[in-house]
């Protein structure tokens, strides 16, 4: 059911990819994204796809799990592909009624689909192999220089880790409340728009109440442990780069540079 949403889900493991410093992975993903947007030749796309395949292999994430992450954006992918396919001017390959497919259209559509697929699966690989806590730790550390510009980096990171921490809890809770109301004959699946919206009330009211209760409890618990923002706060797990981090980072920087220059 709702549990099938893998958006931002972490698959625990003990592979090289899991052990990397989160900052390395974040920077590598930035390089990866830059490279993907610079791809113009088949060779470039092939290299990126190969990189992704090897990375997935190292992380021991199955192709199925990787592509499942695409499900929520399937519609957008199809939509872009169709638009590009029919509305790019150029040399006509095939016409039917008002539809006209051009060579350029075909290429752009294929390139678009590949690009989005690589982009999304690549970033999913990051969240599959990095726990949300480490991810925000890495982000906070990378953005630390912005503190000089009075950007509340620590607070933003804390908000993000709390949000990430509670997404699975809220999904679980939604599932549970939904089941409980279904057991009383609630029907979430049939009827028109208004009826469906109304049917959500028995789900949303308890969900909000419990979310507020949780927020309240969490705030109290944090205050009880003397949390008062990031000032002077030390870390239990201090991040540091190992040789493997330098190696991976070097690889991605070279990759991005090569693709930008040649691709």
């Amino acid at each position: 059911m709702l549990k099938d949403i893998t958006l931002g889900q972490y698959f625990p493991g003990d592979t090289l990819a899991h052990r990397l410093d989160p900052r390395t992975k974040l920077l590598a993903v930035v390089c990866y994204i830059v490279a993907i947007f610079s791809c113009h030749t088949l060779w470039a796309y092939g290299t990126m796809a190969l990189t992704l395949a090897v990375a997935a292999r190292i992380s021991k994430v199955s192709a199925r799990a990787l592509f499942r992450g695409l499900r929520p954006v399937l519609f957008i992918i199809t939509f872009t592909a169709v638009l590009n396919l029919f509305y790019t001017p150029g040399e006509t390959l095939w016409t039917w009624w008002v539809l006209r497919v051009t060579r350029e259209g075909l290429y752009t559509a294929l390139a678009m689909v590949t690009r989005i697929t690589l982009l999304i699966t690549g970033t999913f690989l990051l969240t599959y192999t990095t726990s949300p806590i480490r991810l925000t730790d890495g982000l906070e550390s990378l953005l630390a220089p912005l503190k000089k510009l009075r950007v509340p980096v620590h607070e933003l990171a804390m908000m993000m880790s709390i949000a990430l921490r509670f997404i699975p809890t809220l999904i679980e809770e939604t599932d549970k409340i939904m089941s409980a109301q279904k057991a009383r004959g609630a029907d979430f699946e049939s009827g028109g728009l208004i009826r469906r919206a109304k049917a959500l009330i028995p789900l949303l009211v308890p969900l909000f109440i419990s979310a507020f209760r949780r927020a309240d409890e969490l705030a109290t618990a944090m205050e009880c442990r003397c949390y008062h923002g990031g000032e002077g706060r030390t870390k239990l797990h201090v991040l540091h780069f190992a040789a493997r981090d330098y190696a991976v980072l070097a690889f991605y920087i070279v990759l991005a540079a090569a693709i930008v220059a040649l691709g």
């Binding site: 409980a180 009383r184 009330i201 028995p202 308890p206 419990s210």
Partner: peptide
């Protein structure tokens, strides 16, 4: 009829009466 573990978290109506009536109304 199934009563869940910790069923009090599923209450949503304005009054207890209406909440109890939810199932039979359905």
């Amino acid at each position: 009829g199934l009563v869940f573990q910790y069923p009090e978290y599923q209450l949503f109506e304005e009054t207890a009466y209406r909440d109890i009536a939810f199932g039979p109304t359905n």
